[in-house]
């Protein structure tokens, strides 16, 4: 997986590879054949991003939005990254091909194998139309 990004302002501390970005934007290009590849490239934006690259930890906050090339869009106020997982304890709004859902928390594996919305979810799922 390769991630690239830009920001209006970036503070980078070499020790621990810590960074603080304001109005950060990034794009993740999944490895072909990986589970995440089903979503295509994943773009994200947030008002603020704090991360420790060496420890594979970070938090994005303020109007966090994730867009997948497949058509999935998710919005929340804050999301934590911890190695293999992404976690949010705030309201999450997501929509994609055939679904729209909102929940009060999110837990997702960064390999894209499982995305779980929690603590009360509601939404719509498209049923297949019969000819």
């Amino acid at each position: 997986m390769v991630a690239r990004g830009t920001a209006d302002r970036l503070d980078y501390h070499r020790a621990g590879a810590r960074l603080q970005a304001s109005h950060g934007r990034g794009v993740i290009q999944p490895e072909p054949g990986s589970r995440l590849a089903a979503f295509g490239s994943v773009r994200f934006v947030a008002d603020r991003v704090d991360g420790e690259i060496a420890n594979r930890k970070g938090v994005a906050s303020g109007a966090v939005r994730v867009d997948a090339a497949r058509g999935d869009v998710a919005r929340t106020d804050q999301i934590f990254y911890d190695g293999d997982f992404l976690r949010s304890d705030t309201h999450v709004d997501a929509a994609g091909p055939g679904y729209r859902v909102e929940g009060n928390g999110l837990l997702a594996r960064t390999d894209g194998s499982v995305i779980q919305l929690m603590d009360g979810v509601k939404g719509k799922l498209q049923m297949e139309a019969r000819p």
Binding site: G71, A95, G96, G98, K124
Partner: peptide
């Protein structure tokens, strides 16, 4: 988004 490429 809801009438997109996947349906149940």
């Amino acid at each position: 988004t809801i009438v997109g490429g996947q349906s149940v």
